[in-house]
Amino acid sequence: MKIAIASGKGGTGKTTLSTNLAAFLAEKEHVVLTDLDVEEPNSGLFIKGTLKHSESKYKMIPEWDSAYCNLCGICQEVCNFNAVLKMGKNIMVFPELCHGCYACSELCPKNSLPMKEKPMGELKHFEAAGLSFIESKLLIGEEQAVPLIKQTIDYVDENFPEEIIKIYDSPPGTSCPVIEATKHADIVILITEPTPFGFHDLTLAVETIRELKKEFVVVVNRYGIGDDSVEKYCKAEGITIIGKIPNDRKVAEVYAKGDLLYPALPSVKKVIEKIALFIQGERGDSGR
């Protein structure tokens, strides 16, 4: 079962929920936790495991080979991203603009733009008791997160083909990275906080997930602060709230240290137990 944990607004507790839920479930069964927030991955700060494997991840970028090039300019013509330019007697490639579509490379009549690997990030695979943890980090200066998210999901699919619980800590927002991270999931848990910003961004996230036609539920973090707009909205829209993590300065303090919350705070443990039960139920329902 694949569970994506997402939110429109940043800082509402995606990493908190992902790590605590994964560690809690891992006390009883094998769980895979994957951090797909490749721009700013944080789950690894809360999971202590031993490094099992690491690898560089590459994107494919064309590289000009002048030997047989007849400067016909087809490469420039077929590139929709202005990443290939013919300038005088040279062909210039701008890797940061390239989307890796292969059009210039494969449509070149002289095979003068072979695709070459360019590093874009680093994937790490850790093992802890009952818990496999995978994270990828985008190299600074690399602008496109999506290819790395895709390759990280592929790594998990290849290494863990079995039907176990897989939790994906997704990037924030509503655009391409979060779509990439959630579209393969069986269920999405949206985490929000009961504040005007949290509520507004939740409505955007809901629109996005509905567009993807995914089943989703909501967890409210910092419950007790702010107002009741999130609860009213969920009620009106028929969205299930599966847990409410109480607002407490102690939560912020435990989080600040890099510790998991549920072993230290009984009030949080109760909520995590409830969410875990919900997941068990969902798994039963889907016939597995």
């Binding site: 940043g10 721009e39 700013e40 985008l138 600074i140 602008e143 496109q144 997160a145 924030p172 990275p177």
Partner: peptide, 9 residues
């Protein structure tokens, strides 16, 4: 924007 990718650049 958040992160370190395209929007923040």
């Amino acid at each position: 924007s958040p992160g370190v990718g395209c929007p923040v650049v």
